[in-house]
Amino acid sequence: MRLTVNGKPFEGDTPSVLALVESITEARRGVAVAVNGEVVPRSTWNVTKLGDGDSVEVLTAAQGG
């Protein structure tokens, strides 16, 4: 499955949002996900399927004023 994750090509066996998040960061609290521009609430990560061509943003806390 080919995805775009945080602007870069990503290939992996990550059928759900939860699987993808687990594959790229150990952090849970402070992480948010959008798929194709739509917010995917944390409570639905495990049931939200990813498909070929999806664009995913995985975000977390950074220093900022």
Partner: peptide, 12 residues
Amino acid sequence: TVALRRVDAAGP
């Protein structure tokens, strides 16, 4: 305050 950025850029 904190900002929200891509995990690869934000750092742990």
